[in-house]
Design a protein around this nucleic acid. Structure first.
Lengths: 230, 230
DNA sequence: CCCATCCAAATTGGATCCAATATTTTGAAT
DNA sequence: ATTCAAAATATTGGATCCAATTTGGATGGG
């Protein structure tokens, strides 16, 4: 608890994510403050922060409400992530890979190969793949050296389901998930191949396709709402 | 003054933009509050908001400081704007232009043609071109219907010199500026042509080049700082 | 019966106060 | 003289109080 005020933030995030605060619901500072057992002040700052992250929107002239996410919002955000990570990987390819980055990326590849080598997914494998995946994407963005991409991605990733970190694995259909991750990991291989060959434009195209694949070949409908976006 | 608290925000923006608050300077809440004649509270909220916009960064564990912008930061941000607006124009091209958007864009084109027809730039022409340019870009982003692009652009555009709105025209070299704007306007024409022909990928490539041209063919050195970015 | 105006209640923004924490300075000891 | 520790000061986060503004209802007039 290095930052006491951030506790309110994570609690509100959870309440929004879990649906305890439903979309469109009017949020009153005093009510939330009382509910969380704190003063109105941290709630006030948290509301503004969550607004800047896009999770809350102003409810008219007074108060905030939980933002309503449509399916299109998620698709759009993933598309944005695709072009941003595509830019990052292209610039990385243009500048060339340094030894540390190359080592890191290859480490991600062998880790993924190891997880998928069995031909099926076990329980802990999903989490391990997820960690590897986050590491792969973060390494590329960091190595690109483009700070604007990093900040834009951070902002964009505040939207639920748009982030690499938010990639969920459907444990009830492990076979299908195995095929999906196998395809995704082949794309990882192709991206690293392109990077090592200095094919920056190809790496960019692959990364954009890689992001789009998440949407096209994942069941988002379970949690997404097809209502019109706000 | 519909929102009293926003006055502190605009004042701080001005102070940062004008260099009254120099980059790297440690900002103390009490000092700023006293200087602006308000309580610490609006300053506190403004600091956080400016941090989320990227103009301020945390100075260690305590306090904020004015962010230091390097030349690379600006180039990166413009590159980000390029891929985001490129995505917007591609999606617009894929969905097809509606009548209102087509009318709006053509209006921008004829306005630009009119301004450039004389073969040189007059005093008021620069402002008029600027307004037309902002309208052109905003129309495309709005018409794309991709809310994530719009928000990402808004965030990115908080960085000085990265925004379309921040495009300045060097009044001391009107002849050179005329050639630059002529080229930019030709790109506008090409983008609209591609959109009307349904050539979405071509429109995207043109838009990315259009953003990059701003950097390559503009004198930014006068205001940019070549020191390493933070 | 409907509309307008006014009053009251609620809610949010700003100010001030208090506590917690980090940083700096000073003094002492080695 | 230098370094370490302790104390004092400075700064930020949280709580509470006050003011301003809006919203809702109620009442009176047309």
């Amino acid at each position: 608890m290095q930052k006491p005020g951030s506790q309110v933030m994570v609690t509100l995030r959870q309440m929004i994510g879990s649906g305890e605060l439903t979309a469109g619901e009017r949020l009153v500072e005093t009510a939330i403050a009382e509910r969380l057992g704190v003063s109105r002040m941290p709630v006030r700052t948290a509301f503004r922060e969550l607004e800047s992250e896009g999770l809350l929107v102003r409810a008219g002239v007074r108060g905030y409400m939980v933002r309503h996410f449509s399916y299109n919002d998620i698709v759009d955000a993933v598309e944005v992530r695709g072009v941003l990570e595509g830019l990052a990987v292209r610039q990385l390819g243009e500048r060339g890979l340094d030894q540390g980055t190359k080592k890191q990326l290859r480490g991600c590849l062998v880790e993924g190969d190891r997880l998928l080598a069995k031909g099926h997914l076990d329980e802990g494998d999903a989490e391990a793949y997820h960690s590897m995946n986050v590491c792969f994407h973060e390494t590329i963005v960091a190595a690109s050296g483009n700070a604007a991409v990093a900040t834009a991605l951070t902002r964009n990733d505040h939207l639920p389901f748009a982030s690499v970190k938010a990639m969920t694995i459907n444990t009830s259909e492990m076979e299908r998930e195995f095929r999906r991750l196998s395809y995704a990991h082949m794309q990882h291989h192709a991206i690293v191949d392109a990077l090592e060959a200095g094919q920056a434009a190809r790496a960019e195209a692959l990364m954009r396709e890689h992001a789009a694949a998440v949407i096209r070949y994942t069941d988002l409908l379970q949690s997404a709402d097809p209502a019109p976006k706000t």
